[in-house]
């Protein structure tokens, strides 16, 4: 009896705290039916926001994956002075407020920033333009690939790499054919976390974007504009789409596990 009471309390709490919010997103989007909801997605500013979000995510994934892999190699295959300081530094963006992550780029490239005015004079626009949005997103997503790779590559040790080296392989061959195949799942997971965060980032991007509809609005910023403009159905439709994109990236991390389990079941 006591057991059922505990189950009821737990599921009640899960329902209120964790299940209701995603339900609200979908219900609000479909308030007037599916047709009006889909109609709102035809808005050119909304389409521009979706494209910008995909663009920014792609840049963040490419840059932070390439540098993340090289940094993970450096941090796990060598012991050198300053290594632990680098480890702390690489994780720092995770403990910085999103707003501050945007602010730092204004201090460097804003109208009153250190280099903003001279770059502006040379015709290079960073703050309140797409490059600023990219910088802010690159900053907040910097840690994910490194921090998922480091524990795994640390565990792998260096034996296979040293053997490959003695067999005459060069750096890229070792990285590509020896180290990364073993770290595939962790790398995949880090890339997916980068993707989810890049698509959903709001605070950092909001500070540097300038909120120009159709030009510098990503999906989260466009959701804010729509919501504040009382276009509830449009706001929640875009929110449903964004949440679905970010959450499928997060859930996809379990895919290698499912595949392995199914293969195991067949064998």
């Amino acid at each position: 009896m006591k057991k059922y009471l505990l189950w009821a309390i737990t599921w009640g709490l899960i329902g209120i705290v964790l299940l209701m919010p995603p339900a609200v997103v979908v219900v609000e989007a479909l308030k007037n039916g599916l047709g009006p909801a889909l109609e709102t997605l035809k808005d050119p500013d909304g389409i521009a926001a979706i494209w910008l979000t995909l663009e920014v995510s792609l840049v963040s994934i490419s840059v932070n994956t390439i540098f993340g892999v090289l940094a993970a190699w450096l941090l796990t295959k060598y012991r050198f002075p300053g290594r632990s300081a680098l480890l702390v530094l690489v994780e720092l963006p995770l403990s910085i407020s999103p707003v501050v992550s945007g602010l730092v780029w204004l201090l460097l490239f804003g109208a009153q920033g250190w280099w903003g005015p001279s770059l502006e004079a040379a015709g290079i626009h960073i703050a309140f333009a797409v490059p600023g949005i990219m910088l802010a997103t690159l900053f907040v997503t910097l840690p994910y690939v490194v921090r998922t790779l480091v524990p795994l590559m640390e565990q792998q040790g260096c034996d296979a790499e040293e053997a490959a080296m003695l067999a005459g392989a060069n750096f890229w061959q070792i990285l590509w054919h020896v180290t990364l195949p073993g770290a595939r799942v962790a790398l995949f997971s880090g890339i997916l976390l980068t993707t989810a965060r890049a698509m959903g980032e709001f605070g950092a991007v909001s500070v540097v974007s300038g909120h120009i509809p159709g030009l510098t609005e990503t999906m989260p910023l466009h959701i804010e504009s729509l919501y504040n403009g009382y276009q509830t159905v449009a706001a929640f439709t875009m929110a449903t789409l964004l949440a679905a994109m970010a959450m499928s990236a997060v859930l996809l991390r379990s895919a290698p596990e499912w595949i392995a389990r199914r293969r195991g079941a067949q064998a």
Binding site: L18, V25, G200, Y227, A239, L242, A243, A246
Partner: peptide
């Protein structure tokens, strides 16, 4: 809550 973009959590 970690996977949901913060702006979505906010309006929701």
């Amino acid at each position: 809550p970690l996977a949901l973009p913060t702006a979505v959590s906010g309006i929701t």
